[in-house]
Computed example of a mutant assay.
Amino acid sequence: MEEEFRKMRRFRQEITEEECRQVLKEAPRGVLALRGENGYPYAIPLNQFYNEEDGKLYFHGALQGLKLDLITKNNKVCFTVLDEGFKKEGEWPWHFRSVVCLGRMEIVENRDKVLSICRKLAERFYPTKESIEEEIRKAGSRVNVLVMTIDRMSGKLVKEA
């Protein structure tokens, strides 16, 4: 069953799918929103890895906790990122691109894939391969990886004014 999604209201600000993927690859972090407890939304900042090969988003975290409990109950999620932004010469407001992804989250069960994704994610933040391997040696057995299959992705260029 294909789900219907509302069209973007400000279509002139819409960015292309290729631009959306670029923002997902470059943005250091975003906010994951889940259906929370007691009817409240639950949104947390996370680092992500956008895999161009399969078009999916990957996240790392602990082996247990509220995030995993909520995903087990309802795996529909929203992930939002903003790029660094820029100012046009002679203008004061910031311009930035935002991307909103709606999709379904699953736990990656294969330990080799978990560690492979952790390495790819860590390459964005750690200074050396040696430091990545040291962290995996220390904490690799306690890490979990989640994968988000994107059902809908939209983005726009916003001028903060």
Score class of each variant (00 low, 15 high):
Val77Arg: 07
Glu89Gln: 13
Glu135Pro: 03
Gly39Phe: 12
Ser131His: 11
Cys78Pro: 00
Pro41Arg: 10
Lys88Ser: 06
Lys88Gln: 12
Gly85Asn: 03
Ile117Val: 15
Arg124Lys: 15
Phe125Cys: 10
Tyr40Glu: 13
Ser116Gln: 02
Leu57Asn: 00
Leu68His: 03
Lys113Asn: 11
Ala139Asn: 14
Val99Gln: 10
Ser98Tyr: 01
Asp112Ile: 05
Gly61Gln: 03
Leu63Thr: 08
Gly36Phe: 05
Ser116Gly: 09
Gly103Lys: 02
Leu102Tyr: 11
Cys78Gly: 11
Lys76Cys: 09
Lys76Trp: 12
Pro127Gly: 05
Ser131Tyr: 13
Lys56Cys: 00
Phe96Thr: 12
Glu37Trp: 12
Asp69Met: 02
Trp92Cys: 12
Ile136Tyr: 08
Arg137Trp: 02
Ile44Gln: 01
Glu106Asp: 09
Arg137Ser: 07
Leu66Ser: 03
Leu121Met: 15
Asn75Ile: 04
Lys87Tyr: 09
Arg97Pro: 04
Gly85Gln: 11
Pro93Ser: 13
Asn74Asp: 15
Tyr40Phe: 15
Ala139Ser: 12
Glu123Gln: 09
Phe86Arg: 12
Pro41Gly: 14
Asn75Trp: 06
Trp92Phe: 13
Lys88Phe: 07
Ile44Ala: 04
Val114Phe: 01
Lys129Cys: 03
His95Lys: 14
Ser98Ile: 08
Leu70Ser: 13
Ser116Pro: 02
